[in-house]
Simulated assay, not measured.
Amino acid sequence: MKAAIIFACLLAVAFARPEAEIVKLDSDVGPESYIYDVQTSDGTQKSEAGKLKNVGSENEAIDVTGSYSWVDEKTGEKFTVTYVANENGFQPTGAHLPVPPVV
């Protein structure tokens, strides 16, 4: 299942911009963790690592950390999003993203 998700993500990156070529692709997928890093010739990058926690228990879950970045075609500005995804959901951060008010 994890391998299929990673493969789908890699395909999405590869086909998002047909003129871009993959210049770096590293991955290591194990039964309880994975890591991958993809870079394309247009400056797009995606890195992610996930680790299974509470293995074998009723509360088994995966903790994911990662980042992705791209270069805007019109302005040349590079945007980067870093994130954590866990039992609290997907939590992205980036200089270009709005920050919710403190309550």
Rank of each mutant, 00 (worst) to 15 (best):
F79L: 13
N86I: 02
N54G: 01
D63L: 10
V64H: 05
Y83E: 01
G66Y: 00
N54V: 03
Y83V: 04
V64I: 14
V81F: 10
E60W: 05
P92A: 15
Q91M: 10
N59K: 11
G94K: 07
L52P: 00
A85L: 08
N88R: 13
A61R: 03
N86D: 11
F90M: 03
N59P: 00
F90G: 02
T80Q: 06
S67Y: 03
I62G: 09
V81P: 00
S69V: 02
G76I: 06
G56I: 03
S57E: 05
G76S: 07
T82W: 01
V64S: 11
T65M: 12
I62V: 14
G50F: 14
E60N: 00
Y83M: 06
T75S: 12
T75W: 11
N86L: 03
E87I: 05
N54Q: 07
G66D: 04
N88Y: 09
E77M: 05
A61Y: 12
D72I: 06
V84N: 07
V64E: 04
S67T: 06
V84C: 03
L52E: 08
E87W: 07
G89R: 02
V84Y: 07
F90R: 04
G50K: 08
K53T: 12
A85S: 12
L52K: 02
G56S: 01
G56F: 02
W70V: 10
V71S: 00
V55M: 08
K51T: 13
G56P: 03
E73Y: 05
E87T: 11
A61V: 01
F79Q: 09
K51Y: 09
K53H: 14
G66R: 04
V81S: 08
I62N: 00
G50L: 14
A95V: 02
T65Q: 07
G50D: 02
T93Q: 15
Y83T: 00
K51M: 14
G66T: 01
T65S: 15
N59D: 15
A85C: 09
F79C: 09
A61I: 02
K78P: 01
T75D: 00
V71C: 06
V71G: 00
E77W: 02
E58S: 08
N59E: 11
G76H: 08
K74F: 14
K53F: 13
V84P: 04
E77F: 05
I62M: 15
T93W: 12
A85H: 08
V64N: 08
G66V: 01
N88Q: 13
